[in-house]
Design a protein around this nucleic acid. Structure first.
Lengths: 122, 122
DNA sequence: TATACATATGAACAATTGTTCATATGTTTT
DNA sequence: AAAACATATGAACAATTGTTCATATGTATA
């Protein structure tokens, strides 16, 4: 076949194993799902947010508590909480002037723990 | 007590729930572990790398296969594989001119799947 | 040994991101 | 109603990141 020997412009090389590529292509999840998955992990991929999630897995806390715990400004915590809210990883309730945050579901802790397992076994 | 009413410079507000903060502080993992955890998730937090990991969970592939599958340049794939190698998420073996990559351990797929579960239940 | 090929890598660049600063919003208390 | 307080948010800035381009490295083959 000709197509197998032609250099592929897009990848700057030849397909070495056409069958493998086609097999895997058939198994790949939808582009959009992979994008969403990367976005989810991106949220976990920041030290401040990881600390917030870790703290909230222990107790419901208000913004000020979290800022104090992590020794950071109220503003930076608030900004990060917004991202966590948007990703549906945390929920909140208002009580007077104070807003209390907590984890939105149990998967958060499971993803968290799965990561720790990986690190501990290396 | 005086300390509870003083405004805390670091967080620009008062500690609202001193007991909670102290309790959670005692439960937090080591700073370094949380940093490593964030670094791990950061690696998962990119569409290209997620796609590579997803592909490798189906079959061992060479750089060219992956580039062809994802319709990206060999160079960009190679750069990302370096990051995945450094994080010990993939391993490789050389066979002549070709370098074959595969997942380094099964946790990768478990972290991956845990993320998908979270997304599917929302 | 010269050429071709698969892969790796450094530099450059645009795009994204996290924090800070200033200030706005919403609620309570005086 | 005014002041105090907890939180939210927009703009600005430095830092980080992913891709591209050019080129280097390593292996096989003519």
């Amino acid at each position: 076949m000709n197509s197998e020997n032609d250099r592929i412009a897009s990848c700057d090389c030849n397909i070495i194993h056409k069958e493998t590529v086609e097999y895997v292509a058939g198994k790949m999840p939808a582009e959009e799902d992979l994008y969403d998955l990367a976005e989810l992990f991106k949220v976990f991929g920041d030290t401040t947010r990881i600390k917030i999630l870790c703290a909230l897995s222990e107790a419901e806390m208000c913004v000020c508590d979290i800022a104090s715990l992590l020794n950071m400004t109220q503003s930076s915590i608030s900004h990060q909480l917004r991202i966590l809210k948007q990703s549906r990883l945390v929920r909140y309730r208002r009580d007077g002037k104070v807003v209390y945050y907590s984890l939105d579901d149990e998967h958060v802790k499971q993803i968290f723990d799965q990561g720790l397992i990986h690190l501990n076994e290396k």
